[in-house]
Design a binder for these strands. Structure first.
Lengths: 214, 214
DNA sequence: TAAATGTCTTATGTCGACATTATAGCATGA
DNA sequence: TCATGCTATAATGTCGACATAAGACATTTA
């Protein structure tokens, strides 16, 4: 077993992400190093590194000599980010769909089944979040371009599911969420690359617009 | 006039980029904070921040407790990065080509003309580098998705033109370089989005393969 | 001889402190 | 009343120092 040595910085970054997700830190709020340092009883150095990490992730904005704030997303930011995510994911799936085995298809079916199950019992989308991750990861299971996968995630998932966590939870009814993904899966089963691309682009656009408009 | 207050960190990042470009730091070389700090006569703090910035840019790799190294690109890294850049740029142009005015076309013609001029006199591609930037920026002049533009750059330009600077200079003969771009421009003048997309994908693929294979 | 152990050196991660810069509140003057 | 400038406060950017961990080398052991 490979045990990972976690540095303070990365732990702090995780803590701040959590604080943003559950609303302790809200969009536009200033993030002050001394405060966090006192709260966690550590020095400012690891805090600074964590904030820099979050800045490059797009969760935090930084202005030299003026400090850092939780990123304030404009509607355009949201739409643009989802468009980029959609472009990359759609291209990645379309390019690799030819390599899918029957097993690969089966894995996707399993995710969709789990989504439908969750759709029947859940009251909001919180249970759907990891299923959604699994769904999109499964779509890219045959995509060998790791960089594409990373950048697709970075572009929209990271931002939206942290900064807009609460909005995200109310995007769709749970059954509606499951059905939207099932529809995309159908196009995959049919190995219709063009249709998958179009549906993914539409899917992300719909989510982007719904998140932007609240 | 808006004067920028540059912090040490960003200046250091720029210096290190330069050191990588001109070969003072080579792929795989360890980058040691104390050395740089002594060389620049400053403390380690700004150096660390600069290295973190470069890490997120993809120029440097970091392993906790073991230090940082200039990123060692595999052939696959290069190909993948160029693919992502191509996907984004191609989509960005294709989506915005409908909005191009005659002025926009004229701007592209000007770049191509300058490239041809440079192609006649230059002995290597060093003079082409900024023309290349201008060309691709012009292709995206009507793309309103800023994030797409940023990520396209981040994905391949930053990496290849710093880490593989010297290889890049010998990719093509200067006239050949100009003509390749002129050919893409022709498809733009014709407003043939599909063809522009295909040509850009091919263009980036060709560059990726050439850089990877040396 | 090769493997294992111990020692020494260097670099990293973290700390506390300082100077500089931005911000808010108040005072001053038109 | 509003604009301007000053003051006080607090946060940032940078510094030098230290403990710990990694890597190199020498030493022991089998």
């Amino acid at each position: 077993m490979l045990l990972k040595k976690e540095t303070y910085s990365s732990q702090v970054a995780q803590i701040i992400r959590q604080m943003i997700r559950d609303g302790q830190l809200r969009q536009g709020d200033p993030v002050k190093e001394p405060q966090l340092a006192a709260r966690l009883s550590i020095s400012r150095a690891p805090i600074r590194e964590a904030l820099q990490e979050l800045t490059y992730e797009g969760l935090v904005t930084s202005e030299p000599q003026k400090g850092k704030r939780v990123r304030l997303l404009t509607d355009k930011d949201i739409l643009d980010s989802y468009d980029v995510g959609a472009i990359l994911e759609a291209a990645g799936v379309a390019d690799s769909l030819g390599d899918w085995s029957e097993d690969d298809m089966q894995r996707l079916r399993a995710v969709v089944d789990d989504m439908r199950d969750a759709g029947r019992t859940a009251t909001d989308l919180s249970a759907m979040m990891q299923l959604d991750d699994r769904f999109h990861a499964t779509l890219l299971q045959r995509c060998e371009n790791v960089r594409l996968t990373e950048m697709a995630r970075l572009s929209c998932v990271t931002i939206s599911k942290v900064l807009c966590y609460k909005k995200w939870l109310t995007l769709f009814s749970p059954p509606g969420f499951a059905e939207r993904h099932a529809a995309i899966a159908e196009a995959v089963y049919a190995r219709d690359a063009a249709k998958v691309e179009a549906m993914l682009r539409h899917h992300y656009r719909e989510i982007g617009e719904r998140i932007a408009s609240r």
